[in-house]
Every structure is written in structure tokens, then in C-alpha cells.
């Protein structure tokens, strides 16, 4: 479903991605781990045209990324980025309304269903700043799902949350994974990665160092760099 061929990304002289090759199948849940600055976010942002690649190709169902294909890709950001001037329900309805031109009545029902799915139907008329971080992130997930994407990208979705709010967001993501959504998740939540993902990718210095089943990566990492990273994570966690 997703084919990434030899993708490089430079910001000025700084090369952040140094030749990424990656294939992701439909329904696969892939977690990308690695320290800050390893290129996780940049990789995700390239897949959604928020950054343009310097060289290489990204294909979705065999097609190059453009405005059409990016509509099939939903994205959840570290800092939620909910539309501050709109209510929860309006946040979810805006994109289908102005991008797809769907009618408000149909959308409202769909939006309420999505809110129920993330457990926030009672917050439909609240504004983002009246919600906790965890609630905002769950709304952001519902907002992305409203465009009926085939792929969901999560850019460190729990990294700016208070520890006690992480669980509620991961629960929603777990449910989504169980429904068969194709997901690519940049995360520092090792337990979650182990439990939910079909594959784990360890990114370091702009290259994929290791790519395998979660048990393999976490129990039996092949590379020194992976071992060192996991040790650091265990100590800090």
C-alpha cells in the first residue's frame, strides 16, 4: 500500500533522511522508534507532503503523492493542532464540508458517531481550550477519521501529554488498529509499540537500522545501536 524508495530529505546542509526504503502493507500497524532528531517526524511529514522530499519517491497504492492521494492519509500531530475557533463538532465537520462538499446533516451524524468512538460525544459543543490534552488528541483523531482515510499517521501523539492522559489516547489508537486501519506511528511508548504493532522500525541518524516484529526488536535486537537505544529508554522509563 505504501512504498517508500530511497527517500532523502535535506534542510539546507543538514540531511535528516539518508535513504529510506520502506514498504507497508494494507492493515499493517508500524511503529517508528528512535531518539529525538532521528528523522521520525520528518519521515511522517514527507508522507503527507507537509515536507517535500529532496530525492526518492513515495507511492501510495502505486501512485505518487499529490493532493488526491494525500486525502487518503490522515495525520495526528504531537501538539493536536485543533482549530481553536471551532467547537469539537465543527472541528470534525470542517474538512469533509469544505473539501468534499458533503451536506451538513449527514456530516453531523457521522461526526457524532466518531466522537462516540473516541468517547467524547458529551463534549461536542466544547471549544478545544476547554478540553484536557488527552481529550484534544482524541478529537484530533476523530477529525482525521472524518475524511475516511486509508492510512493514519501519528506523529508522537502522546509526547506532549501529561502521563496520566497517555492511556486514553493509546486506547483509542489500539481500537483503531484492531479495526484494521493501516497505521504508521512515531512514538516513545515502547510498551504500546510492543503490544499493538505488527512491525517496529528503529530509525537512527536518518536511516532504518532495524526493521522487524516487535518481539524481535525488543527481545533480541541485532544491532548495537538498537540495544543502546532500548537500554536508554528502559533506564529513563
Amino acid at each position: 500500500m505504501i512504498t517508500i524508495n530511497n527517500v532523502h530529505k535535506k534542510f539546507g546542509n543538514l540531511e535528516v533522511l539518508k535513504g529510506i526504503d520502506l514498504k507497508i502493507k494494507k492493515g499493517e500497524v508500524v511503529c517508528v522508534i528512535g531518539s529525538s532528531g532521528s528523522g521520525k517526524s520528518t519521515l511522517l511529514r514527507c508522507m503527507n507532503t507537509l515536507e517535500s522530499v529532496t530525492s526518492g519517491t513515495i507511492l501510495i497504492d502505486g501512485k505518487r503523492l499529490d493532493d488526491q492521494t494525500t486525502k487518503d492519509i490522515g495525520m495526528v500531530f504531537q501538539r493536536f493542532n485543533l482549530f481553536a475557533h471551532l467547537t469539537v463538532l465543527e472541528n470534525i465537520m470542517l474538512a469533509p464540508m469544505v473539501v468534499k462538499g458533503e451536506s451538513k446533516d449527514e456530516l453531523r451524524e457521522n461526526a457524532i458517531n466518531l466522537l462516540r468512538k473516541v468517547g467524547l460525544e458529551q463534549k461536542s459543543s466544547a471549544y478545544p481550550n476547554q478540553l484536557s490534552g488527552g481529550q484534544q488528541q482524541r478529537v484530533a483523531i476523530a477529525r482525521a477519521l472524518a475524511m475516511a482515510p486509508k492510512i493514519m499517521l501519528f506523529d508522537e501523539p502522546t509526547s506532549s501529554l501529561d502521563p496520566e492522559l497517555v492511556g486514553e489516547v493509546l486506547e483509542v489508537m489500539k481500537a483503531l488498529a484492531e479495526e484494521g486501519m493501516t497505521m504508521l506511528i512515531a512514538t516513545h511508548e515502547m510498551e504500546f509499540a510492543r503490544e499493538v504493532s505488527d512491525r517496529v522500525i528503529f530509525l537512527d541518524g536518518g536511516v532504518i537500522v532495524e526493521d522487524g516484529a516487535p518481539e524481535e526488536i525488543f527481545e533480541n535486537p541485532k544491532h548495537e545501536r538498537t540495544k543502546a537505544f532500548l537500554n536508554r529508554m528502559r533506564k529513563s522509563g
Partner: peptide, 24 residues
């Protein structure tokens, strides 16, 4: 982030300006 979220949801620059950025 407001521009980026708009783009990620498929809004063009013009629509992001009109529906998301200008009202704020």
C-alpha cells in the same frame, strides 16, 4: 500548526486561510 492541520486534512491554502486562519 493550524496551517499544517488544514493541509493534512486536504484543505487548499486558500481554504485554510478562509476557514481556519482568517477567523482566528
Amino acid at each position: 500548526g493550524q496551517w499544517e492541520a488544514s493541509k493534512a486534512l486536504g484543505l487548499t491554502r486558500g481554504k485554510a486561510l478562509r476557514y481556519v486562519v482568517l477567523p482566528q
